[in-house]
Write a protein that binds this DNA or RNA. Structure first.
Length: 470
RNA sequence: GGUCCCAUCGUCUAGCGGUCAGGACGUGGCCCUCUCAAGGCCGAAACACGGGUUCGAUUCCCGUUGGGACUACCA
């Protein structure tokens, strides 16, 4: 099959919430499929539920897509802009006798549904308006699609394989509400045909909708696209991922200091694999992506592994670029103020020492405090352990030596410290840890000498003096 | 209740009839070391169960069990 330049896929979220990780993964797989085949990726907003859709969420979804760098070639289309198109198609079905007006009120329907459920019967529409001879003038009505009741429908899913449905389990679904707004199962078909979608890649929560949609395609005489149903993403309790499981919105991960490439890498490995490889560049993903390597079973979202991946990406990232993305976090934490000038070259050096010990940008920024601030807050436990009187004696001797240094570089400092320890016949750690605590406020940091160099002689002396004095 | 999907270490997964069942996260130990990381080495850890098919099943088929989704004038 020649799929080159002919593949057209879409991500079709409904703007009833932020872009969440499940949606993001669906978007990602569509995007990868399109990019891999040199096809077209379309963003379509499914806002036919005017009661729940909001402009804010449309913005939020677009923002999330941009942050993840999932660029689209067409759209965002909005279904609310296309109501006339849908109504024409509904009209056509009505004319051809493939749909009918239903005068049952939502209340009546709901009541019958509850009764059926209570009796343990399938809550399926009974079709009572199906054979009405004449339209009832001036009575509000919805339009239902006449679902075939004989035979079976087979969905040939690219991921799950063939799935068979008995047609008699399908009901005459409403395609046009009494307020004139069309419904999902109808517009999705019309749009996918209208937009010449070749592959529908979506969550497997849509599997049961697929046979219904196939009948609509058939009613119009259209050839359905290919279907590929992605397995769900679950929480630790194996239930569908939701707010209960913690952060689910993509932008929440941005705020927590995750890199978009790390999230993308994590998400793609939830359900897709390529041998033993865990870390991929975008180019590799595009090159290697194939529907054949998409798994069938649902996957539990594992924050620990995402954190590890994020640390990998931070480690690989250029210090300069990291420093730049860290700026908003520094401002948010009040470590630097909005307009203040900061020497990016210097900051990059500091960031460089922290790259391999920060799993998130938030952690990175937190460590950056002791590089940037004048004084540091000292952890009480660290103080008790390492700033005892005997240590303070060494610190003040050392402070004198450091004050006299003109070459305050890591290499020079290392020599000085070793000489200091040798003369007093103490281990390097015996002096390094107290200095570390005095300068960084804690017991863990990058190599002490590089920290001292970057913090700079001035601040180092100030911090040591303060510790000795107080 | 009905329909459909799914089933390999705790988690993500490789496996596409014959493997000591591989990798990754996490976890335990060791090495490195001024601390913390990073890195290296080693370890514990899985084929849900029962029937078939086959010379041989983790792999193919059927049940059971267990999870999940859908079942709206939501998408």
């Amino acid at each position: 099959m020649d799929t080159k330049n002919t593949v057209r896929v879409r991500f079709a979220p409904s703007p009833t919430g932020h872009l969440h990780v499940g949606g993001a993964r669906t978007a990602l797989f569509n995007w990868l499929f399109a990019r891999h085949h040199g096809g077209t990726f379309i963003l379509r907003i499914e806002d036919t539920d005017t009661g729940r859709s909001t402009e804010e969420y449309i913005e939020a979804i677009v923002e999330g897509m941009r942050w993840l760098k999932l660029d689209w070639d067409e759209g965002p289309y909005r279904q609310t802009d296309r109501f006339d198109i849908y109504r024409n198609y509904v009209e056509r079905l009505l004319l051809e006798g493939k749909a009918y007006r239903c005068y049952c009120s939502p209340e009546e329907l709901e009541q019958r549904r509850q009764e059926a459920l209570a009796q343990g019967k399938p809550p399926k529409y009974d079709g009572r308006c199906r054979n009405l001879a004449e339209p009832i003038p001036d009575k509000p009505c919805a339009v239902r699609f006449k679902m075939p009741q004989e035979g079976a429908t087979i969905v040939n899913d690219l991921i799950k394989g063939p799935i068979e449905f008995e047609n008699n389990v399908l009901e005459d679904l409403i395609i046009l509400r009494s307020d004139g707004a069309p419904t999902y199962n109808f517009v999705v078909v019309v749009d996918d045909i209208d937009m010449k979608i070749t592959h529908i890649i979506r969550g497997d929560d849509h599997i049961n909708n697929t046979p219904k949609q196939i009948h609509i395609y058939k009613a119009f005489g259209w050839e359905p696209p290919q279907f590929a149903h992605l397995p769900m993403i679950l929480g630790a309790d194996k239930a569908r991922l939701s707010k209960r499981h913690g952060a689910t919105s993509v932008m929440a991960y941005k705020d927590m200091g995750y890199l978009p490439d790390a999230l993308v890498n994590y998400l793609v490995r939830l359900g897709w694999s390529c041998g033993d490889q865990e870390v991929f560049t975008r180019e590799e993903l595009i090159q290697y992506f194939s529907m054949e390597n998409v798994g069938k079973s649902a996957a539990v979202f594992n924050p620990e592994k995402l954190l590890w991946l994020n640390s990998q990406y931070i480690m690989k990232e250029e210090a300069r670029g990291l420093a730049e993305t860290a700026i908003p976090f520094l401002i948010k934490e009040g470590i630097i103020s909005e307009g203040r000038h900061i020497d990016m070259e210097w900051l990059s050096k500091a960031v460089n020492t922290l790259k391999e010990r920060s799993r998130t940008l938030v952690e990175l920024v937190s460590s950056l405090k002791y590089y940037i601030l004048e004084y540091v807050e000292i952890d009480p436990k660290a103080k008790d352990k390492f700033l005892k009187p005997e240590n303070l004696k060494y610190l003040s001797e050392l402070n004198v030596i450091l004050s006299g240094l003109s070459d305050f570089t890591a290499a020079e400092l290392e020599k000085v410290f070793h000489a200091f320890a040798d003369e007093r016949e103490i281990k390097l750690g015996a002096i390094a840890q107290p200095v570390r605590v005095a300068v960084t406020g804690g017991t863990a940091s990058p190599g002490l000498f590089e920290v001292l160099e970057i913090v700079g002689k001035d601040k180092v002396i100030k911090r040591l003096s303060k510790v000795i004095g107080g």
